[in-house]
Each structure stands twice: as C-alpha cells, then as structure tokens.
Design a protein around this nucleic acid. Sequence first.
DNA 1: TCAATTATTTAGAACGGTTCTAAGGTGAAA
DNA 2: TTTCACCTTAGAACCGTTCTAAATAATTGA
Lengths: 145, 145
Amino acid sequence: MAKISALEGPMSFSVETLREAGLRPTRQRISLAKLLFDGVDRHVTAEALHAEAQAAGIRVSLATIYNTLHQFTEVGLLRQVVVDGARTYFDTNIDDHHHFYFEDEGDLVDIPGDSIVVSGLPNVPAGTTQSRVEVVVRVKGRRRS
Amino acid sequence: MAKISALEGPMSFSVETLREAGLRPTRQRISLAKLLFDGVDRHVTAEALHAEAQAAGIRVSLATIYNTLHQFTEVGLLRQVVVDGARTYFDTNIDDHHHFYFEDEGDLVDIPGDSIVVSGLPNVPAGTTQSRVEVVVRVKGRRRS
DNA sequence: TCAATTATTTAGAACGGTTCTAAGGTGAAA
DNA sequence: TTTCACCTTAGAACCGTTCTAAATAATTGA
C-alpha cells in the first residue's frame, strides 16, 4: 500500500490516471501502463505487448493484456487502429493523426496530425454521426535504415 | 476497365476476362463473376458471397469462394478493404475511391472518387513506394431509410 | 486492523473467420 | 480421347481473440 509510489515512473502517467478512469491500479495495469506510456508514441499488438512484458519480467497473462488494452481504449487512453485483418493495433497517440502502414513489415507509423488535410468530405447519412476519419497511406517495400 | 460488365454482357465478361487473367473459366469462377460483376458496385465478404451463391443455386464450396476472391484480387478484378478486424471485405469497384463504414451495421459504402481530396501527403520513406491511400469515414448510428 | 465485498486476473477452453491438405474432378492441348 | 496441369472440395488445422469460472487482489467499513 505504501509502496505504490515506488512503482511510478518519471513519465506523465500516474496511478491517479487509472483511478480517475475508474480502473483499480493493479500491479498488472500499472506495469503495462508504464510500458505503454513511456513518453514515446507506440503501436502495439496484444501479442507484442505480452512478449515485451514477459521480457521485462512482468507476470501477466495474455487474457489480461487483451482486457487491459480494451479497457484503456474504452477510457480513451488508447486508440484502436485497423489496417490488417489479421491483428489489431493499439496506438498510444490519441490525438488526431494518420498512419503509414508498411505492408511488408506489418509496421504502423504515425504521420503528424497537421501534415495531411482531407477536404471534400461528404455529409454523413441522416441518423448517423461521423465518429472519425482515418487515412492510411499503404506502403510497399523495405525502408532503408 | 472497372465497368466492363456494365458495357458488355455478363457472359462475355466472365469468360474473356478470366482467360486474359490466366484463370481457367470454370463453372464456379464464371458463376461467381456473374454475381459479382453485374454492373453495380458491391462490397462482399466471403460468407456473404457464399450465402448468395447458395441462394442462387450455385454449388460452390466456401474454400472456392476464398480462393476465387483472392485470385480475382490478385489479377485486379477486386480490391480488398480492411475496416473491421473480424472480416475481410472485397470491393468490385477498383477505381480510386474511399469509403463510409457504418460501424453499427458492419456495412461499407463507396464515396465517389472525386469528392474527397487528400492533400499534404508526406513523401514515403526511402526504399519504399506508396501503394495506395485509403480514407475511411467511420460513422455511428443507424441510417434512416 | 481484518473481515466482507467487489473487482481483477488467470489458465485453458471455446470461438469464428480464414487457410491448408490431399484426394477427386475438370478444362484444354494434341 | 488421352493426358496432365489446373481446379474444387470437405474437413481439419490454424490463429488471434473472447469467454468461463475459479483463484486472487484491492477496497470498504466496522
């Protein structure tokens, strides 16, 4: 109880964020939040986050990874991105922005929000509301590094 | 190229186009092509096309539906659209265009190609080539009919 | 503090769309 | 026709994801 503060890292995330979202700050959620919100925008799949947690010595089941990713998405801490039918990506950048998707590598990269402008958007049909506009720039080939 | 079936009879489309694409004009492929390229742009899932074929009295297995949809996609007769992690949509409209996706109904609708303009696209990383830009306008709620 | 209460985690089973397998069927060249 | 490469098929396998129900952990209240 008194040691929770020792788990908090140097970044902006705090256990208060979880409490405010109505989520109990459990060991698993705190550890995963630390991995995810380390200050750098990230795109993760459930499997990838699970592997990363294992490697970091965090004991957490795959079911909890899925639960946590969905709960974080529900409370607006993450955003789900669909670019590949085979798996689901979660993005720690929840601001308006778009993506490069590297088809050959299955890798997703942010395009800064103010660079792309979409104009000429039609009105949505009566009875519906626009929830968001997604632009994916699909890219083939291997990046030079 | 996109609207051949609207200009020619469905029979000549099927056989000629399949031959040119290097695909044998089998009973199954011809029947499915007739369903798909009837002159109206369509978005189908494998399961939906299978059900439609059954209803039309066409004997074809689900495996063949999948094979055929992929082969048609490879030769440029169809385009694959990813909007929902749970299933794959195939679009008979292969021209440049974008989509409305009705999240509550799982339904995909074309937005005419010339209405939306995307500007400010960044250059793709060195070593890669842009394969396509996809815009999906996600919509919530139920359309009034 | 320490039950009592409630939320969370978990292993493993189940699920659903898609792909694979290997055996039989079919189209086309000669 | 014969031949053979291509195609179709049923059913099994696959794989990411969700579900289940039992164990565990966080919180509440006295």
